[in-house]
Nucleic acid binder design. Structure first.
Lengths: 143, 143
DNA sequence: ATTCTTTTTGAGACGGGATATCAATTTCAA
DNA sequence: TTGAAATTGATATCCCGTCTCAAAAAGAAT
């Protein structure tokens, strides 16, 4: 029994609703993906190459996009690359992004999260996830 | 005299500090860029092609990145493309997005903005702008 | 279990956006 | 005016992500 039983269930439910099939690859990729907080398709590809050298890169991309549709992942575009965030991961973190050099600093702030909840409930929403990116200049680029 | 004198001054100051030169192209591109709220390099390229058919696409990219370093622009990655936002153009709001029906509610929250400033300065950043999106289910979709 | 339809996969081709290259040109301080 | 340093433009190149399509796998029906 996988330790990602809950997420696997979510995936299966999504597959069922859309006439999609549960495959060995999808199971494998989900298992590996859930061990990360966030990862790129390329990184995941190399990680999995050890377990299954024939897993195609295109399949990784397709599957990660599937996870996004199922609500298990969230795509984030950083410069040229795309990061896929593990939505179920507890310590959700946000990003400070330097518009000068592209440097990225991760942070967490409970107060902000709490205020987000307030805003959401005031509007009748139940938050599943969020994205917060602060754009500006880091100390080096400002000078 | 250009009506973008203030921004032109910011650019010149940045150029001076970095041993860069003030060129006809940079002036032309800044003028065109500031007329927009946000634009892609490609769009700007086509706009300017009328005024100066020999302006190269590479120059547009280089110059927009320069503007980012000067704090005049801000790059945002949307899917495959990069949008360059005109930082001097204010009027910011955040979004609550329903993952069920796609409904979008705009909101503003000063407390959150204040906390963002705190986080940024703690990391040596000067915020130009930000993006905050809350994803969840609206009251109707939850049932 | 076997058959049959539908979906998925893998390998590589492909496409678009952005950057790198480099000789010719321009800027600007001396 | 001159010359060193930066910039430009045209294009080659890179890289990420998607598309293509024949072969394989899933899973429903029998």
């Amino acid at each position: 029994m996988s330790k990602h039983a809950k997420e696997m269930e979510i995936l299966k439910e999504h597959l069922g609703k859309h006439q999609l099939k549960f495959t060995r690859q999808r199971e494998l990729i989900l298992d590996a993906f859930l061990k990360q907080e966030h990862i790129t398709a390329e990184e995941l590809y190399h990680q999995l190459a050890r377990k299954d050298p024939h897993l195609g890169l295109a399949t990784i991309y397709r599957t990660l996009n599937l996870f996004c549709e199922a609500g298990l992942a969230q795509a984030r575009h950083f410069g040229t690359q795309t990061q896929y965030d593990n939505v179920s991961h507890k310590g959700h973190h946000d990003h400070l992004i330097c518009t000068g050099c592209g440097k990225i600093v991760e942070f967490e702030n409970c107060d902000i999260e709490r205020l987000q909840e307030e805003v959401a409930s005031r509007n009748g929403f139940t938050i599943q996830t969020h994205r917060l990116e602060l754009y500006g200049l880091c100390s080096r680029c400002r000078h």
